[in-house]
């Protein structure tokens, strides 16, 4: 009997392990029993209580990580939006330029403004195009909205434009509706002045001012601006008409130089007769 006990004692670990394995297998077989489900429900409730605070900690760290990721994505998207905005503006400009090129009757050279040299009483623009692209002194410079000025100086790769907002600049103009002639000049501020218009002339606020056929620099019918106000000048015989230019000179980014020249024979005829045309 004792030897049997000793034998069983030597096999104790194996026997207990086998018994536990059998119990485990029996439990696996009866895993779906209703009593087991009740027991499981209680255990899940207990462990869920333990998991609640840790779940908060985990969600806190995950939300921080998520915020960081979202911030990065936000920055990337912001950069992308900025690039898209630039591209949109560029696209709009190009479409406008294309449409304008197709409308223009004269060959034009597109140029970008790369500088605005300031001189007292003068407003100039430096362009990134010069004689190498066919730009010459005196050529008219325009924008989609209207007249800008004329080429004042030109080098091989650059040129300088004298704008309408210069004290020495004059341009022969007329009121498009009534065909009344006058001379556009600038004194100060953002507006132009139309002079030499008789007080009896047909002019009204809102009328469009365009270049005249009398001009020897600019082709006719280039829009200049619209009549803002009408009043008597110093002499009392003429009107002093304030004109709001169509071109926003403070926001110019690009212009077009028109390869236009007045008929040479008309010039030579006028020179022979000794006629002075006055303003450009």
């Amino acid at each position: 009997m004792q030897s049997l006990y000793r034998f069983l004692e030597s096999l104790r670990d194996y026997l207990i392990t086998s018994l536990l394995c059998v119990i485990s297998l029996a439990l696996i077989a009866s895993s779906d029993a209703p009593q087991t489900q009740v027991l499981r429900g209680i255990a899940v409730g207990v462990f869920a209580t333990l998991q609640t605070p840790t779940a908060w900690v985990v969600s806190f760290f995950r939300s921080r990580e998520e915020t960081s990721t979202l911030r990065t994505i936000n920055m990337e998207l912001l950069e992308e939006v900025m690039q898209l905005r630039c591209l949109r503006r560029e696209n709009e400009n190009l479409r406008e330029m294309l449409g304008f090129r197709q409308r223009s009757l004269h060959p034009i050279i597109a140029a970008e403004i790369i500088g605005t040299p300031t001189l007292p009483g003068q407003k100039f623009y430096t362009l990134d195009a010069g004689t190498d692209r066919g730009i010459q002194v005196g050529l008219p410079v325009i924008h989609e909205n209207g007249l800008v000025g004329k080429v004042f100086a030109a080098s091989r790769g650059h040129s300088i434009v004298q704008s309408l907002l210069s004290k020495t600049f004059r341009v022969a103009a007329k009121i498009r509706r009534s065909r009344v002639d006058g001379i556009v000049s600038w004194e100060s501020g953002p507006h132009l002045i139309l002079r030499n218009v008789l007080k009896t002339a047909d002019v009204a606020v809102g009328d469009t001012i365009v270049t005249s056929t009398f001009s020897n620099i600019f082709p006719s019918e280039i829009p200049i601006g619209s009549v803002l106000s009408i009043g008597p000048d110093e002499t009392g015989n003429f009107n002093r008409i304030v004109v709001r230019p169509f071109v926003d000179f403070s926001r110019l980014e690009h212009v077009y130089v028109m390869q236009w020249s007045r008929h040479a024979d008309a010039d030579s005829l006028e020179m022979r007769l000794g006629v002075s045309r006055g303003p450009s």
Partner: peptide, 15 residues
């Protein structure tokens, strides 16, 4: 019981 496993499986593996 706690992890919702088949009851007896972890017991068998760990035994």
């Amino acid at each position: 019981i706690a992890a919702g496993e088949v009851i007896g499986l972890s017991a068998l593996a760990k035994t």
